[in-house]
Simulated scan of single mutants.
Amino acid sequence: MSAPSRLSLNQETIKQWSLPELAAGCAEAGVTGVGLWREPVQKYGVAATAELVRGTGLTVTSLCRGGFFTAIEPEARATALADNRRAIDEAAILGTDTLVLVSGGLPAGSRDLFAARERIADALGELAPYAADHGVRLAIEPLHPMYASDRCVVSTLAQALDLAERFPAEQVGVCVDTYHVWWDDTVAAQIARAGAGGRIAAFQLADWITPLPEGVLLGRGQLGDGSVDFRWFRERVDATGYTGPIEVEIFNPDLWARDGAEVLAEVADRYRTLVL
């Protein structure tokens, strides 16, 4: 059975696969889209990765991640901006129009969320035109509030849109990730707001399961193992006119310990049952 047409596999979901294994496994399963991460791409080689995915007929639906814009020190901010320009260059080489941003947490010793968000806006102001010149759109991803201190002071879709809407829609959009926003009782209205403004740059799926592991980063669940109503999200995102890829992005050591082809088959089956 062929994989659903809009299904994209984020590289981290089957982290045990090398890039050649990812390309071959997706081609074998009929999955035509992949979301990539910078670290393994850099290790394999950006140009080599681009050649690999194109040679197997795959489309890179997103590159993760840019961001971490909240440092106060001028030297640290300059370093972050330079790294994000490299990320934009890499996205362009890979042929994806979407660079996902994890915006950054509070700097050490700071408790000022509002100032941190303004530094994100300042960074976007410098980077958005550069990204547009390279055919890349920046996608602000709100992360669950438990990550606000150390990873992302943008915790809701509304906060992400408040930042994105300062810039042209073709330059800055948002990433709707079910893992991070499923709990928010305003999320339907914010999805509609994002769609009306042409701001949905990426749509990602992972389930919320408890108890959370120590460190919480690797606690995403396989579709159907937790609390998220994926069809509800898909219907609301689709209602905005979004017709792009739907990327499954799961960080879970239990999945990484299994056979990759088995995990991919399970992802596709869960997607058919729970998303379509």
Score class of each variant (00 low, 15 high):
Ala48Phe: 01
Gln11Lys: 06
Ile120Tyr: 09
Phe68Trp: 10
Leu212Gly: 08
Gly33Lys: 05
Tyr271Lys: 01
Gly224Tyr: 00
Leu205Lys: 13
Ala188Asn: 04
Ala148Asp: 03
Ile120Phe: 03
Gly173Tyr: 02
Leu52Tyr: 05
Ile250Val: 15
Gly198Thr: 12
Leu205Gly: 09
Trp256Ser: 02
Pro40Ile: 03
Cys175Gln: 00
Arg166Phe: 15
Gly241Ser: 10
Arg85Lys: 15
Arg65Asp: 13
Leu157Tyr: 03
Trp232Cys: 13
Val248Ile: 06
Leu161Ile: 00
Trp183Asn: 07
Tyr147Leu: 07
Ala257Gln: 11
Gly135Tyr: 11
Tyr271His: 06
Phe230Ile: 03
Cys152Asp: 05
Thr59Met: 11
Ala188Ser: 09
Pro129Trp: 02
Thr98Pro: 03
Leu276Trp: 01
Ser18Pro: 12
Asp89Ile: 00
Thr210Glu: 15
Gln16Ser: 12
Ala189Thr: 12
Arg85Glu: 15
Leu124Gln: 10
Ala192Met: 07
Arg220Trp: 05
Ser149Trp: 13
Ala189Met: 11
Tyr271Asn: 03
Asp177Ala: 05
Gln42Phe: 00
Thr210Gly: 01
Val41Ser: 05
Glu39Pro: 04
Ala158His: 12
Val275Pro: 04
Leu127Asn: 04
Ala206Met: 03
Gly105Arg: 11
Arg193Leu: 00
Arg199Asn: 06
Arg38Asp: 11
Gly244Tyr: 14
Gly55Asp: 08
Val275Leu: 02
Ala92Asp: 00
Cys175Ile: 10
Gln190Glu: 15
Asp269Asn: 08
Thr96Ala: 03
Glu28Lys: 03
Pro74Met: 00
Pro4Cys: 02
Ala265Leu: 07
Gly55Ser: 11
Val237Ala: 03
Tyr179Val: 08
Phe114Thr: 15
Val267Arg: 07
Thr32Ile: 11
Tyr179His: 09
Leu99Pro: 07
Trp256Phe: 13
Val237Pro: 13
